[in-house]
Nucleic acid binder design. Structure first.
Lengths: 205, 205, 205, 205
DNA sequence: GATGAATGAGCTTTCATTCAT
DNA sequence: AATGAATGAAAGCTCATTCAT
């Protein structure tokens, strides 16, 4: 119990430090200074610098995952949209609640270490697969316009990442609700004003 | 003249190495090995590792910037869209042409160093301002639906980054044309099939 | 009483561990794991890692010493030889019986620490003095051929150490009796077949 | 050329330091202090601490090996003995000439590292095989008395190691010639005065 | 007396940068 | 201008020892 508490303290310190200085910028010295423990103590709880970092990634993945509810398609298009909005809002809220973890994930894109890279890549791959699956359902159900679901899944992920990164880095710039709502509207409707321009693909663009 | 050539050689070597190994994974040794020059020579042309990296960022910024043409709004909505498509296509093509630089920019998101961070941030800030300005024009001109141009600018940037990163990392996965076209369609139209669901904000979402 | 028992348990554990891993290879963790006691408990019974090691050396010295009987020279050459053989056999048997201690003594020759070194050196010094004394007696009594007793004492010690080390490390390679008998014969007679070559120093060698 | 010289300097420094402090007692700091070079310079010439040590072992093995001449058995027993004496004398002289290396080899018996251990063991194994082979020849040729050549080879190695270790540690205690001559006489003749005691195995011992 | 979490000095190794040639 | 050997600060990690419980 006590052990778990100590571990959590160090993990929190590491989270802050990694968020502030990045993986490479952070040293064990920074982490233990912040946690107020000795060098050896750190290694009592974590095998290595890399290992703490992975623990943080795992923690973050778990947080995100736990916000996503399976979508029930049986209750009609509007209900589906509402569920999507719920998922999106919860994820956004969770990330903005865990700023440091969010910053770590969104900053340290890749290139730390083979194992970390793999973790990140597989996380995003699963996320993309999830989105892509939902898109295919939407297309089949006639809710989503015909498109390449793989590319569009990338687009959705991209909007989320970029907007959230901004939300994390400049917390007071834009209200959370605005971010969530605008992401949704943008993803659903795109830029164009309905009926504003010619909508046939060939003619219009 | 000869000096400039030597400098370019080293810069190219650094580009390849950074793209392959990342900023921290790359050592001066890798760069000079690839460039075929001595250690000291490297420092004759560049102040530091960080400095070469900055030069590469600058080079990339310049490439991107040179692809973007000012949009002439006087020729009607369809013409504007055509110009936007032109800009987007040129940027996409340019990035996919300069894979290494693109990978560097999109991978080493941030966190290397205060000065580098500032460079990246200011680059993206200017890009966002550009997009935001265009959006405001679009909204005023009735082409773009009413929205928060700052958030939507982030969304657009996000889609570009994510799709391009995928395009760079898995060059043969999806054809360049598909990427460009899908980004455009997505940005313009969003996900929904026109008329597919109720479009009033209150009722629909 | 109980305290003494605990102490002995830890000492035995240390003996096994040092024999298996060597002084530097062994950690306190290994010893306490084997002894089944806590870290702090170890330091309740021994001041330091070095200290346990010294205790083991002392224990071993005592075992060896207790095997050596004073030689009675009054009963003629053959009886003396018989007594020497008795001493040698008992020492050899004792060492092979305490493999771990033997391995420790013979492996960790020297160089651990000033105090340990001194202990080892003084042990060997006393052993050598013992042997040397016996040699002088033998020379005076006409049993041993004229020689430098100090160097020859080293030779005798050397044969013992080397053969016993082999006996410890490869227990099943050569039978104990063979080892003991061959050491004795070798020490007494050397290599040459009696009468096989010219034995005068000047002529022969 | 210059590079080789520098390397030799560091190697010599390492030799001194290892001889003085032992493998574990010695730190890179000691070596570079003695060599008068910077930390990085050390690693320019040697991969690791272990690596320098191995180099020293190799160097020593080579020195020893180069002192041993193949024995020509065709010229009679006395000539064979003379050749053996020559080998022994050269080896002894070489070791006493390279005190530091000798001390390293004879002190750091074993237990440093798997690879080093293997090196040492294989060195001694080859040495033993050499001696054993010579003994078998001697027995077949009737020069050497019947004995177990494996055990006796250990005895010979043991006398050499012990006497040389003494010679290294206390250089001025006994003259080199005495050491060499006494080892030889001891190995050849053993302790007993010829004809001094009954030589039949059963009766005498 | 027993515990085991905590300690921190110390280790080997790396690598961006310098500078004598 | 070009070289590459030399540098040394700083990193991550270990482990014998201590001490509050």
């Amino acid at each position: 119990m006590d052990r778990e508490q100590r571990r959590t303290e160090i993990l929190k310190a590491a989270e802050d430090v990694f968020a502030r200085l990045g993986y490479h910028g952070a040293g064990i010295a920074d982490i233990i200074d912040r946690a107020g423990v000795a060098r050896g103590t750190f290694y009592l709880y974590f095998e290595s610098k890399r290992h703490v970092f992975e623990q943080l990634l795992d923690k973050f993945f778990e947080i995100i995952r736990s916000q996503v509810r399976r979508i029930d398609v049986s209750r009609g298009p509007d209900a589906v949209l509402e569920q999507i909005r719920g998922n999106a809002t919860r994820v956004i809220d969770a990330i903005l609640l865990h700023r440091s973890l969010g910053k770590i994930l969104l900053s340290e894109a890749v290139g730390l270490d083979e194992e970390c890279d793999e973790k990140l890549l597989s996380f995003y791959a699963r996320l993309l697969a999830l989105i892509e699956g939902a898109l295919r359902l939407g297309i089949d159900g006639g809710i989503v316009r015909p498109c390449d679901p793989r590319v569009v899944a990338l687009c959705i992920l991209g909007t989320m990442k970029e907007v959230l990164y901004h939300g994390i880095m400049k917390p007071n710039d834009l209200p959370r609700e605005t971010l969530a709502e605008e992401i949704l509207q943008y993803n659903l409707r795109g830029l164009l004003r309905p009926g504003g321009v010619s909508q046939t693909r060939d003619g219009g663009l």
